[in-house]
Design a protein around this nucleic acid. Structure first.
Lengths: 192, 192, 192, 192
DNA sequence: CATGAATGAGTCTTCATTCAT
DNA sequence: GATGAATGAAGACTCATTCAT
């Protein structure tokens, strides 16, 4: 009966929000944005529809919330990857990529599906370009440091491979030789 | 007084059908399958909703129709690509890929979006696997003929690059250096 | 190429019409009037929708056509039933009733379903009343001739039993003791 | 600020539900199941189509809801009918039957129309058989207790008469001598 | 006589969103 | 913070009917 303290309230808030976002991520990834209804999300999150609208302005806002959360967790991840040795760093990048693909498969699917909706949501396009450039630049720096003469072009190819591998893995999944590809790539690019 | 001749009818039929499929392709590509309504398709095709259901059993059947049409046109295309000289054939493959990506961009987008709906439509999954295997095998044969020692792995990488390039081009489009990538790839793989 | 003679035309006409009515009867009986579409009827009759509209003005007209055909066939049937001996005639009536119920089950179902649509089709109500009165009068005459003191009331009960038996048989069908009921009734009413 | 109490909600719920069921019963009875649209029901109930789907999964579920409600009210009714004296009980049964037919005519029509849809809805068939057996058994017991030698057969005839009377009354209604039949039957079967 | 392409109103159903409590 | 009843627009799909041929 006594009012909750501010802190308690904040905790409840952020728990509920994460709850909702978790449900959204899973459903968006599996069924796609359009085929997922607010009711489904509320049900999966174990809350009422009304409460969902307390935290998010609407369905599209849910998408933004999801992306924001992904962006911050990704930033964290990148800190551990970059080191002084470019060969080691490149290997880290590759290993992290494959690990992510395997461990956070649903996130991958979600982001990929979203990426193809570039024309539907304006904010997705900006995000996509930004990501693409960041990635490619990092790879170019590493390849340059490793003495690769066509660093820029090869960086592009590597970046392209990341997306291609993700894409194919999403389609074929259990039948896809992800391990083999990982080993071959690491041998080819990182071990001299 | 006599009914339309069978030939006349067939002509009318196939015109309407292609009309509908054209409209579907464009809308599915731009907005996605789920976000495209039958009404939109009928309107874009300039016909009534009812007529659409005269030719297609439902929305999913439209998808199949679209895929069937794509498959036959793709089969035609492949005939001109394969020749006796593996180096030339590989170059053809690359050039055709980039040409298709540019000229039939909408088809590409459609197929890619569909590929990510693999779990929603059973027949899509089968199709995807079949396509993937066909592609990779052809590339492996060509690379083997060209004396590449790791033909299998490199074929996979090439296949992966195709999907990756398509994916990135779809996202970034006018800002994407498609020409540069094409030239670099052809130089790298086909010219000795 | 030569024009058909008038006679030939009439033959084709009445064949087509009976064809259509047969299909309608079966579908109306099994699925009901509302749940049966013109397309289904045309398909079952093996003709085009257009031709159906050549013979019948619309769906409701089909119903009238069906009823007209039933009325004439029923009139035929009644001729053989009535004889000089009231006991024999009553037995005939009973036997014919059960025979019809068994042999032309679909017609029974059709008519019964129609009878319950009394409010939907004006012409059905008139028909129903007329039939009911005709039946009951005949039975009353027979029972009177047989010396039954409450002929009028007992005639009503018999008429009621006919409808009730038909009704229950329609619902329960293979599990319904139609034979037993037939025998019991004939013994009870016709054999002194 | 606090949500509606559970009790309040239940009240609102059951009001709406009964509202919808009332409208459905009337429309199904008059027009039949197939010819009644959800829109009509919603309009008659004074609510939106959407709300109807909040409470019922679909049109067929509405039917089940209606049947469930009828079943419970019927069970209540039967309690008052059965007593120690078989003659009195049989008279009660007869009187209640006629009373129901008159007072809840719409329910009768609804149930009868439904009974003829036995092939369309599986659960209707089971229900019909169950009802039929229950009825007939009760009548057989009563007739046996009253010393009727052919109790089983006569019970069948009585059961059949119930359905037949209902059937004819539905068709002819205001012109049907329901009172006379009632009196005659009671005199015939219950008064010695 | 005969076809089937074409239509548009209507069917059942879903869903994002609002709001009283 | 939290509920879920309620809405209305929109979605997929059906169907009686018309009409050019």
């Amino acid at each position: 009966m006594s009012p909750r303290s501010k802190e308690q309230n904040n905790k409840v808030r952020s728990q509920s929000i994460n709850n909702i976002l978790d449900a959204s991520l899973e459903l968006f990834a599996v069924q796609g944005y359009d085929a997922t209804s607010i009711s489904m999300i509320a049900e999966k999150a174990g809350i009422s529809k009304g409460l969902l609208y307390n935290y998010f302005k609407g369905k599209e806002d849910l998408l933004r919330g999801l992306i924001d959360r992904l962006n911050s967790s990704e930033a964290d991840m990148m800190k551990d990857v970059i080191g002084n040795d470019p060969g080691q760093t490149l290997e880290n990048v590759l290993r992290v990529f494959f690990k992510e693909l395997r461990d956070n498969f649903q996130q991958w699917v979600f982001v990929s599906k979203l990426a193809l909706q570039v024309d539907k949501f304006d904010f997705v396009k900006d995000l996509a370009i930004e990501k693409y450039k960041g990635y490619t630049q990092l790879l170019e720096q590493l390849l340059t440091a490793l003495g690769e003469p066509n660093a820029k072009q090869e960086a592009r190819l590597l970046a392209v491979m990341f997306d291609g591998i993700g894409f194919q893995y999403m389609m074929i999944k259990e039948d896809y030789p992800l391990d083999e590809i990982e080993n071959y790539l690491i041998n080819k690019y990182c071990i001299k």
